[in-house]
Structures are given as C-alpha cells and as structure tokens.
C-alpha cells in the first residue's frame, strides 16, 4: 500500500512536469496570436504599472491613485472601453512585469532611454525632464558646473538615466535601489552627491521636506518621459493617437495644469 502511494505520488509529479512542458508548446502552435489590444480588451482591464511618484502617480486622501500620469491613464482606458487598474511595481522589474503580463503598461514618468526603447514598445514623448545633481546646501556654491563635479562621489538609482549620465562623465558612483535611496546617501553623507529626476527633486528636497538641507545644482542632460508597452504591442500607436487627440482638444493641458506640470508638456 505504502509503495503504491509512493508510486502514485511520483507519477503525479512527473505528469505535472510534463503537463507544464506541453502546455507551453500547444499554446504557441494552435492559437492565432492575439494582438495586445485584443488581449487587453478581452480581459476588460488595462493594468498600469506605477510607483508612488508625485506628481505623476500618487494616492489622494481616499487612497485613490491620482496624478498627471494616473489621470491620463484613466482617460486612455476609458477611450479603449476597458477598466483601469493601477498596480505598484518594483521599478527594477518593470520589463519582467510587462513580459510576464502581470501589467500591461508602465506609465510612471519613465525616461525614454535607449535601454527602455529596446526593451519596450514606447509611446511618443509627452513630458520633458532633466537629471539634476543634488548636494548639501552648505557646499552647493562650489558645484555649479559639470567640471566641478569630478572629485565627488555619487549615488544614483541603478539602471536610471542619472546613472547613465555620471558613467558617461566618468564620475565615481554607487548604484542604489531607488532615487530616494540616493538622496538618503547624500543626507547620511555616505555619498557626496546624487543624481535624480528634476521633477522628483522639485517635490522631494528643500524646505518643508525631510531633505531640507539638500538642494539641486547642475542639470546633466534633458530627457523625455514616455509610456512603455510590451514589445510590438499595438497599444503604443493607439496611445500616440490618444495623446494627439487630447492635446488637440486641450484636455491634456487641462490635466497638466491641475498637477503643475504644464511647463514640461511636449506638443503632440
């Protein structure tokens, strides 16, 4: 009896493995591939991968996601006739989240770098941004030019546009997990300076924040935000059209003014 159970168990285990294998091939073979648009419409929800990033995506007092990106995403989903669902993701895993279909797009003030464009189907740029150097207020005067930065040690978010810039300038740097971690490095003096997004710097440092003694000086580059979809997704083109329409009818600007980013909006 015991042997029989043992045999049964092992057969089950092997079968489950085989089942995993076969499901894989049959899935590819006999179904005509759906476009991403059809996939999203079939399931009826557009899952938007975000992080808590004011003023693009953040929670209001009631716990609802708002912000320039969040509001635009809601409007885009409405135009597709699907529900919108916001999911907080780990920024490092955004490509995996897309490809694993646990989200349908990344819409979170994402800088359009070459890496991002290679890994995702991206929309047209809709918002301008810059990478700025953050240092202690006390020493800010000394670091107003790119040339003056060469003796500093930098903390930058791994895989961010900021990391790319300091690497290009051959500045000594430590990659950390998030832009906020980079700021903590400067505050705790484990690094001399950080490079983060201008939009974020505006919201997070200076008077009235936890980083009152920090300030930002040099802009290292200017860059643009876009929305990322799965590679070869037809949703990117649909979004471009949606951007064009909402820029034309003024609804995009209206939304931008609500969150104070109207200066940065790019004409569609």
């Amino acid at each position: 009896m015991k042997k029989f159970i043992a045999l049964l168990l092992s057969v089950l285990m092997v079968l489950s493995l085989v089942a995993c294998g076969t499901k894989d091939t049959s899935g590819d073979a006999d179904k005509t591939p759906k476009t991403d648009m059809e996939y999203v419409k079939d399931k009826g929800t557009l899952i938007v991968g975000i992080t808590d990033f004011a003023p693009m995506d953040y929670k209001d007092d009631k716990g609802e996601w708002i912000g320039f990106d969040a509001d635009m995403a809601k409007a885009f989903a409405e135009s597709l006739g699907v529900e919108v669902e916001f999911v907080e993701i780990d920024w490092d895993n955004k490509v995996m989240e897309l490809d694993g279909k646990t989200i349908d797009c990344v819409w979170n003030g994402m800088t359009l770098t070459d890496e991002v464009k290679a890994a995702m189907e991206t929309s047209n740029a809709y918002c301008k941004n810059a990478q700025v150097v953050v240092v202690n207020k006390a020493v800010a005067d000394k670091y107003q030019t790119v040339e003056s930065l060469k003796d500093l040690t930098f903390a930058v978010e791994a895989g961010s546009a900021g990391e790319k810039e300091v690497t290009k300038l051959k500045l000594e740097n430590t990659p950390v997990k998030a832009q906020s971690d980079a700021l903590m490095e400067v505050k705790s003096k484990t690094s001399d300076a950080a490079v983060i997004d201008l939009l974020m710097a505006g919201a997070m440092i200076g008077e009235g924040t936890g980083y009152a003694d920090l300030t930002y000086t040099v802009s290292l580059n200017s860059e643009e935000y876009g929305v990322g979809f799965r590679k070869d997704s037809d949703l990117a083109a649909a979004l471009n059209k949606f951007f064009k329409d909402s820029y034309a009818d003024g609804s995009m600007m209206k939304c931008a003014k609500q969150y104070g980013v109207q200066e940065s909006i790019i004409e569609q």
Partner: peptide, 11 residues
C-alpha cells in the same frame, strides 16, 4: 522616502 501621502524624504 520617495514621497507618499504628503510625506517625502522621511527616513
């Protein structure tokens, strides 16, 4: 740390 519910940069 990043900023949430009006609190930003709090370690």
């Amino acid at each position: 740390l990043k900023g949430s519910q009006g609190i930003a940069g709090a370690i």
